[in-house]
Amino acid sequence: MDAEGLIREYLDRLGTLARERTPEQAEEIVAGVREHIEAALAEAGRRDEATVRTLLDGLGSPEAIIAAGMFEDDQPSTAATAIRAGTDARGAYVGGTEIVALLLIASGLLLPFVGPLFGLVLIWVSQRWTIPVKIGASLVALVLLALPLGVLLSGPLSTSNLSTRTPVVMSEAPVAPSPIPIASSH
């Protein structure tokens, strides 16, 4: 069979199989593969039978392409599923968890240690916020965690047992918050 015949037969077979499995996308799949073949042959600068056979081998048989099931008509792509599953949680930028986290962090001024610490946990639990936002919010929480400790450390009441205190280490890394500030306050 000549090169053009091979291509025609290949695309016909692909079209038939695609229409059986995923009728709405069949045309798009065949058009894509046809474009690929034309681009590859243009790049090769030849349309002889050997070149076409090698090219079709690389594409895989129509059976293999359809059997791989990448179109999964009945099952949306995993990426789309992840988005849909997260739509409720991620639809709004601020939801219950985030509001409570912000309130707890802000309460650091009234409720030292405990508020910002729980706020910090909730920040990382949040499904809406991305890592950079979480790091930013964590820095605020860490500052509010450290503030009362700084006051205690420098205050007259704390001078007697100053040496037993663990120094507060401020970390900018997005690691789980260290419980050191609470432990050292007792």
């Binding site: 692909l14 695609a18 995923t22 709405e24 996308q25 798009e28 799949i29 894509g32 593969v33 474009e35 690929h36 034309e38 681009a39 243009a42 690389g58 594409l59 895989g60 048989s61 129509p62 293999a64 392409i65 359809i66 791989a68 099931g69 990448m70 179109f71 999964e72 949306p76 792509s77 990426a79 789309a80 988005i83």
Partner: peptide, 30 residues
């Protein structure tokens, strides 16, 4: 392994609204 499997994948990503397409003129061909 089979390069052709990307085309069903692209069709699906487009149907699922994760990618969009537009046509551009080409110097060589359609």
């Amino acid at each position: 392994t089979s390069e052709g499997t990307i085309y069903p994948l692209l069709a699906r990503l487009r149907r699922d609204g994760l990618v969009a397409t537009n046509w551009r003129e080409s110097n060589s061909g359609p």
